[in-house]
Amino acid sequence: MKSLRTLAIGAGALALVSPALAQTDAYTPPADELAEAMAIIDVIFPPATREQDMINTATTMGNQMAASMMTGPIFEEPGIRAIMDDFLGELPEIMRPVIIKHLPSMIKSTAVAYTREFSLQELRDIRAFASTPSGGRYFSSVQSLLADPAVAKANEAFFAEVNASQQTEVEKLQGRVVEFLQNNPEVVERLQAAGVGQGS
């Protein structure tokens, strides 16, 4: 059942999908650059539909990850498949409160990242393009392109290989940790005293 747990955790982790998640630091972007960056983001994520657009993006990637992992006999069982389909169907609403909570900081941090990456003139050039009909359509469709069948197929293949390689590496890591603990019983005692492993 490990694959089910991994799938659920992996899908849930996609709740915070964002083009950039800049870490908070002491950097303060120039006001004029930040204004240009925010104007660009308003085209990519229109304020009126921003929340739903982000949920749609997270859902799309979650479904692609799920499709890459729901293979093998366990997912050929109709009852198991129905449970997973229900879970994926409920995922957008499960993610909604988290996305609503973090969306303002994700948008702001993305704008800050733009000011770090692009000069004021470059931001103005990008905004000028975004203000044209073609530019507006290009930027506003970037997220929806994730659902294109060709992109979905490529992403599913990517996630499948990542999952397979991850399982191998996790097993190697577990082996190293077990060996370390076997060779260092005092560490085991400290962990037990701290309550690690209790109730699992």
Rank of each mutant, 00 (worst) to 15 (best):
L21M: 11
F129D: 15
G62L: 04
R96F: 05
G62K: 02
Q121C: 03
I83H: 03
V188C: 03
M38L: 13
A82Q: 11
S18V: 09
S165T: 15
S200F: 03
L21Q: 14
V187D: 00
Q143S: 13
R116F: 04
V98P: 02
P47W: 00
S3E: 14
A130Q: 10
T28K: 09
H102A: 10
I107K: 07
Y114I: 06
A13P: 01
V187H: 06
L181S: 13
E77W: 01
A22K: 08
G62H: 06
G136T: 15
T6Q: 03
D25F: 00
A20E: 11
L34R: 09
T57A: 09
M61S: 08
A150E: 15
P133F: 00
D25K: 05
E186Y: 03
E179L: 01
V142A: 06
E122Y: 01
E77F: 02
T115Q: 05
Q174E: 14
R81M: 01
Q64P: 07
E36I: 06
K172C: 01
P97Q: 11
D86K: 04
T28Q: 13
A128D: 15
Q182A: 09
F129M: 12
I41E: 01
L120N: 14
I9K: 06
I83F: 08
K2W: 08
D125E: 14
E77V: 08
H102Y: 14
I9R: 05
A11L: 02
V151A: 11
G135D: 11
P47N: 09
Q52N: 04
E51I: 07
I80D: 11
K153W: 02
L4R: 10
G136M: 08
N163I: 06
M106W: 05
P73I: 12
R190Y: 05
Y138P: 09
M1L: 12
T6F: 00
G136R: 11
R96M: 03
G62Q: 07
E90I: 09
A58F: 00
A26G: 11
G197Y: 05
A152Y: 06
A164N: 13
Q167D: 15
A150C: 04
Q52C: 04
T60F: 00
G72K: 01
R5Q: 10
T28Y: 00
L173C: 09
L173F: 10
G199W: 02
S3Y: 00
S68F: 04
M61V: 15
L4K: 13
A194D: 12
S144A: 14
G175F: 00
R5A: 12
T110W: 00
F87C: 04
M54C: 01
E179Y: 00
M65I: 11
Y138W: 08
Q182E: 10
P92E: 04
